[in-house]
Write a protein that binds this DNA or RNA. Structure first.
Lengths: 189, 189
DNA sequence: CAAGAAGCAGACCGATCTGTCTACACACAG
DNA sequence: CTGTGTGTAGACAGATCGGTCTGCTTCTTG
């Protein structure tokens, strides 16, 4: 793994656990064992590193979710079941790929970059849109009618965010199961 | 307004807008026009101030929500309608009492204090539990059966968190309306 | 071989961080 | 009258912040 990747992975780990503004550059350097000069060779500023970390998590999360959805049954109910079982695995730390659950990195990050116009905030918004798009794609493949897919994908997204927040803030680790049952009831109409 | 309250209100405003770790003590002092000695007279540390700010927002939010729910129709569907209309007002900045919408302060704060054992995190969890309890209380008064009330209150809580996240991260200001429709469909069963 | 990219350690910069302290002012209760 | 509580302004301390820079090494590539 090259130094750039080492920095991004280490920074993600620390940012995810403690928040972005709570973690200093020097801490990232110490943990990753990379020299300061090297960091500023790859990134023009801390914020550029933050952007790279968001992009890294974006790619990792979408890859994981896509793999999970692809291996499930390709029906509407099958997809919903697969989605919320995947979330349940995540909440209960059965996915090494995503590291220990500390809520949604993108939601947490938007808490620190609250202005909707900020670049970091926009990257987070784009991630959430990408997730809903992915869900819509899978729904479309099941043969659901077009207007219903995007509406259902939005609904699943809303339930997913709600479950993540309840799992993180309240420690309600069964939130994915609950949300999945709600989703099935809503999709039945 | 005494100096202690001035500090808390100013700190909340800055924390809510920019995040907690991004705002320094000196900035709070400058904006509030309070002396540093006075701050440390009332609070033993920045974290003690943070705790007071969380408690302040907790009280303010619960008071607002309670007032809104009380003036609505006391039926299940009436309550759901009232709840999500209130959220819609919040998301679209029609509630001066809550200041400009920047997502949920408690969710944002949990992003910065990710460890579930941390005192600040626990205060946020308690707030979320208090909201669900309030919803359950109102549902109970409509004459709904006991086991159904707590389940429905949890569901409403999940939809509420999902709507808040979508409204903040995605800028989807209609999220409360969407979530309200879902809630009505779920409650109809 | 030469050049440049990528790496190291860490000194250094000015700014800012949380928190302490001095010195003084005013109000109010015993 | 005299302490106590609440307040002011701001110097100060020690640590840490993001970021720059020097000097040196190693690898790769034209």
């Amino acid at each position: 793994m090259d130094k750039r990747q080492q920095l991004v992975v280490t920074a993600f780990d620390l940012f995810y656990r403690h928040g972005i503004h709570a973690v200093g550059i020097n801490q990232i350097l110490q943990v990753s064992g990379v020299a300061k000069k090297t960091l500023y060779h790859h990134f023009s500023s801390k914020e550029a590193l933050v952007a790279a970390v968001v992009a890294y998590r974006d790619a990792a999360y979408l890859e994981w979710l896509n793999a999970r959805l692809a291996e499930g049954e390709q029906t509407v109910t099958g997809l919903i079941h697969t989605l919320f079982m995947a979330l349940d695995d995540w909440f209960n730390d059965r996915v090494e790929q995503l590291t220990t659950f500390h809520g949604c990195f993108f939601i947490n990050t938007c808490g620190e970059y609250g202005e909707p116009g900020h670049e970091i905030h926009r990257l987070c918004a784009r991630h959430k849109a990408a997730v809903v798009n992915m869900l819509a794609d899978y729904l479309r493949r099941t043969g659901t009618a077009a207007p219903a897919t995007s509406r259902l994908a939005q609904t699943l997204g809303l339930l997913k965010e709600g479950a993540i927040v309840q799992a993180h803030v309240q420690g309600e680790k069964r939130a994915a199961i609950t949300a999945g049952e709600l989703a099935l009831r809503l999709a039945a109409d």
